[in-house]
Nucleic acid binder design. Structure first.
Length: 474
RNA sequence: GUCCCCAUCGUCUAGCCCGGCCUAGGACAUCGCCCUUUCAAGGCGGUAACGCGGGUUCGAAUCCCGCUGGGGACGCCA
């Protein structure tokens, strides 16, 4: 049984990189009918907050990355870690270190300054452990790493990676305040939770040999490891706030669909022939580490935007209607709590789907369908609402007043008759009408716009346009 | 400084493991054309890459070595 986990630390929101790690774990678990576990690594009490735990959960849920067990919190398991530390201490596999953080930092800087390795010098390694087995104040506990030989990490993505043991640091597993540290808790938990595959970011590859020795000291076999390549920003440095939005929920707010983000993220490092767009089922079916690349990938917002537009086109209008309501409220297009005819909204959305790349854009385009009135774009107004179009607009208005079937088919007939009568091209009429109806020069087909806006508002807007021309022209 | 990882169009990538089918494929972006009531969407086409140097071989994007470049790690962070 495959058992994998996503183990974020709640020191920030769920970000793009974390989300992809979670996603790969999720896909691997689902592909193998295994279990996906969520574990919160909050041993750093100074930086972890409950708000961030909630934020991470919110992000996971939004992306549809459902976990099977958890969320577990490491702060709930301090007793467990303590027991393991005591065991190692008794067995001599760990020892007390009396160096203070300040001393350590100073020695680190000195070593670095002399061009030497900043590795712990091991001065507490062999001193007599006077207080063995009992609580020693102000002492941290270090794990005794082997100092000779090699450790080989056989990574699912990278193959064999060899580390010289004499480079391994005796890392601290228990702080002097009695709290355990990451490299220890991660191993204890992965053992206790029967994790079979550790799938995480590349930045943990160097920790792996150390963790392997902890597994050994605990008398447990190591799981399989898969280290994912990093995600970089446009300048090829580690993705961070400097590169724009990195929080997953920020993409929700910008009007992205979760499936589009998932699809984009999975293609960052993974591929399946030439296919670009995948359903969730396909991802689960096709996912494999064989198709995961080794090189870091640059996050490309343009491609994500394109994928989002593809997902919007594919979505059904009813669902988009539900999703866009919040954006309509936020844009002030409808009042909070105000409802609109969903059937009508769906029709309106259908005309906009292939024109909106995000839900924000969709909401903004919906404005001219929903609002009572339109604001003219200055350029559009100058170019199309003028003496040249005045008679055409007036003629159209007159014709529409008597039109009972306000449908695209009938509207088209009316337009045709007018352009024939005036001997102009359709654009000569359609563009001024477009400005009158939407305020701008871009919109879905003009007949559809009229039909959806409806007879009453259409005539009002035409009257306003004509009046505008009259006041502009003395 | 030391260690580890990586290296195909601007970007994501296919191909690499099992050398010839690669005149290096697809996608985003970009440019042009078509469609057209506008804008999109869609269709067609263009520009654009095997980092460099050595090997091995009849033959290398593919195998080996070096270099260069980029990234990561070296915490009483995770």
């Amino acid at each position: 049984m495959v058992r994998v986990r996503f183990a974020p630390s709640p020191t920030g929101h769920l970000h793009i990189g974390g989300a992809r790690t979670a996603l790969f774990n999720y896909l691997f678990a689902r592909h193998n009918n295994g279990k996906f576990i969520l574990r919160i690594e909050d041993t750093d009490r100074t930086r972890s907050t409950d708000e961030y735990i909630e934020a991470i959960i919110e992000g996971m849920k939004w992306l549809g990355l459902e976990w099977d067990e958890g969320p577990f919190r490491q702060t709930d398991r301090f007793d467990v870690y303590k027991d393991y530390v005591d065991k190692l201490l008794k067995q001599g596999k760990a020892y007390y270190c009396y160096c203070t953080p300040e001393e350590l930092e100073q020695r680190r800087q000195e070593a670095l300054g002399q061009g030497k390795s900043p590795k712990y010098d091991g001065r507490c390694r062999n001193i007599v452990q006077e207080f063995e087995g009992s609580k020693v104040r102000n002492a941290a506990v270090r794990f005794r790493m082997p100092q000779e030989g090699q450790t080989i990490v056989d990574d699912l993505i990278r193959g064999k990676v060899i580390f010289e043991n004499d480079l391994l640091d005796d890392l601290i597993i228990l702080r002097s305040d009695g709290t355990p540290t990451y490299n220890f808790t991660v191993v204890v938990d992965d053992v206790d939770m029967d994790i079979t595959h550790v799938i995480r970011g590349d930045d943990h590859l160097n920790n792996t040999p150390k963790q392997m020795h902890i597994y050994k000291a605990l008398g447990h076999e190591t799981p399989l490891f898969a280290h994912l390549p990093m995600i970089l920003g446009a300048d090829k440095t580690r993705l961070s706030k400097r590169h724009g939005a990195t929080s997953v929920m920020a993409y929700k707010e910008m009007g992205y669909l979760p499936d589009a983000l998932v699809n984009y993220l999975v293609r960052l490092g993974w591929s399946c022939g030439d296919q670009e767009v995948f359903t969730r089922e396909e991802l689960i079916k096709y996912f494999s580490f064989e198709n995961v690349g080794k090189a870091a990938a640059v996050f490309n917002p343009e491609k994500l935007l394109w994928l989002n537009s593809q997902y919007i086109i594919k979505s059904n209008p009813e669902e988009l209607g539900e999703l866009v309501m919040l954006f309509l409220e936020n844009a002030g297009i409808i009042q909070k709590g105000q409802d609109i005819d969903r059937k009508w909204l769906s029709r309106a959305i259908e005309t906009l789907q292939e024109r909106a790349k995000t839900l924000v854009e969709l909401a903004n385009s919906l404005r001219y369908y929903i609002a009572e009135d339109v604001q003219y774009d200055a350029k559009a107004k100058a170019k199309f609402l003028n003496e040249k179009s005045k008679d055409l607009l007036a003629e159209l208005k007159e014709n529409l007043i008597s039109l009972t079937d306000f449908s695209t088919a009938e509207l088209e007939k009316v337009f045709k008759s007018i352009i024939e009568k005036y001997n102009v091209k359709l654009g000569a009429l359609a563009q001024p009408v477009r400005v009158a109806m939407t305020g701008g020069t871009e919109s879905p087909g003009i007949f559809e716009v009229l039909e959806i806006v409806g007879k009453e508002k259409t005539i009002k807007r035409l009257e306003k346009a004509i009046a505008t021309i009259a006041t502009v022209q003395p």
